[in-house]
Simulated assay, not measured.
Amino acid sequence: MGVLDGKVALVTGASRGIGAEIARHFGQAGAAVAVAARTVEAGTSPFEGTIAETAQQIRDAGGTAVAIPVDLSKPEERERLVSEATAQLGVPDILVSNAAVTYFVPVIDFTARRYQLMFDVQVEGPFHLAQLVIPGMREKGQGWILNISSGAARHPALPPGPRAGRGGTVYGMCKAALERFSTGLAAELYADNIAVNALSPTKVVPTPGTIFHHLTTEDNPNAEPPSVMAEASLLLCSGEPKTLTGRIAYSQELLAEQLRAGAQSAQ
């Protein structure tokens, strides 16, 4: 029996990287997983990984999964995603908003189109998807919403470090907005027994995106494996909603905290 048996999970940005690892982890825990992203077929993206591959990996491991292509920058696509996930698997118990479109460009050089696209996918997307799944969670009497954030949400120190000129300001803006949305929504939904949290990796995770942007390398011994984010996500999406909610959590710190709590309860 998995901790997510009988649950339906919708995971965005799940064709590769952290999102794919979360989707697979949730499938192993018993959830029926709607795997959502833009990349449907290999060769259509500069990065490896597709939603079809992630869904098949879950099924090959004995789980249940469907692949649903979606462009999260468009409101009508978000509505279709939730509608199709519900039709194929049932009303979502869990929403994980992980999708991202990111450009590392200094503010002075940022175009309006790229700025809007980043906010559409990373801020408006999670906001709208939450609006779409909340009614079903309320009917069920519980639910879990998890937004994947980043250490970029933290304010930079001054005088700045060597990474200040890499152009991460807009990315940080998006993640900071996502975190404030998460804590605010957690307060709004506390009485509904719906947990809302934001989760960041404690260290940079080697993914096709972070490697492409030269934030880390695949063999970096100080990097954080995607499995750590997946395990922390499972914890936040299976715990008692009124106990584990409203958190801006960092993966390794959260897992260490729960390990200590488990050891104390066993004494």
Score class of each variant (00 low, 15 high):
residue 256 A to F: 07
residue 85 A to G: 09
residue 135 P to N: 08
residue 106 P to I: 08
residue 152 A to F: 11
residue 74 K to A: 10
residue 89 L to N: 03
residue 261 A to Y: 02
residue 31 A to G: 10
residue 195 A to S: 15
residue 158 L to R: 10
residue 247 R to C: 05
residue 173 M to T: 13
residue 22 I to V: 15
residue 253 E to W: 08
residue 178 L to P: 02
residue 259 L to Q: 14
residue 46 P to A: 09
residue 167 G to F: 09
residue 40 V to T: 14
residue 87 A to L: 09
residue 150 S to Q: 11
residue 146 L to F: 04
residue 103 Y to G: 11
residue 58 I to H: 09
residue 154 R to M: 14
residue 191 A to P: 00
residue 64 T to K: 15
residue 90 G to Q: 09
residue 68 I to W: 07
residue 184 G to Q: 10
residue 27 G to S: 08
residue 111 T to N: 05
residue 247 R to E: 10
residue 189 L to S: 04
residue 267 Q to V: 11
residue 61 A to S: 15
residue 31 A to E: 08
residue 8 V to H: 03
residue 100 A to S: 15
residue 14 A to S: 15
residue 176 A to C: 06
residue 187 A to R: 13
residue 155 H to G: 09
residue 266 A to I: 06
residue 108 I to S: 10
residue 89 L to E: 03
residue 87 A to W: 01
residue 25 H to R: 15
residue 183 T to Y: 00
residue 146 L to V: 04
residue 88 Q to L: 14
residue 105 V to P: 03
residue 190 Y to D: 05
residue 78 R to H: 06
residue 119 F to L: 15
residue 66 V to L: 09
residue 124 E to I: 06
residue 222 N to M: 12
residue 225 P to C: 01
residue 169 T to Q: 13
residue 9 A to Y: 12
residue 45 S to G: 08
residue 114 R to K: 14
residue 172 G to L: 06
residue 193 N to W: 02
residue 138 R to F: 02
residue 42 A to Y: 02
residue 95 L to D: 00
residue 98 N to Q: 05
residue 57 Q to L: 13
residue 236 L to S: 05
residue 174 C to W: 04
residue 223 A to E: 04
residue 20 A to Y: 05
residue 77 E to Y: 03
residue 186 A to E: 02
residue 6 G to C: 05
residue 253 E to M: 06
residue 210 T to N: 14
residue 251 S to T: 09
residue 125 G to P: 05
residue 47 F to M: 08
residue 154 R to T: 09
residue 4 L to R: 11
residue 17 G to Y: 06
residue 197 N to L: 01
residue 72 L to P: 08
residue 41 E to Y: 05
residue 109 D to Y: 06
residue 176 A to V: 06
residue 38 R to D: 01
residue 256 A to K: 13
residue 89 L to H: 08
residue 28 Q to Y: 01
residue 130 A to I: 00
residue 204 V to I: 15
residue 221 P to G: 07
residue 258 Q to C: 04
residue 26 F to P: 00
residue 102 T to G: 00
residue 28 Q to G: 10
residue 235 L to F: 13
residue 146 L to E: 02
residue 153 A to Y: 14
residue 171 Y to W: 07
residue 160 P to Y: 13
residue 3 V to P: 01
residue 115 Y to K: 01
residue 147 N to L: 09
residue 257 E to N: 02
residue 231 E to M: 12
residue 232 A to D: 06
residue 223 A to Y: 11
residue 21 E to R: 14
residue 31 A to Y: 08
residue 250 Y to L: 01
residue 47 F to K: 04
residue 220 N to W: 04
residue 8 V to F: 03
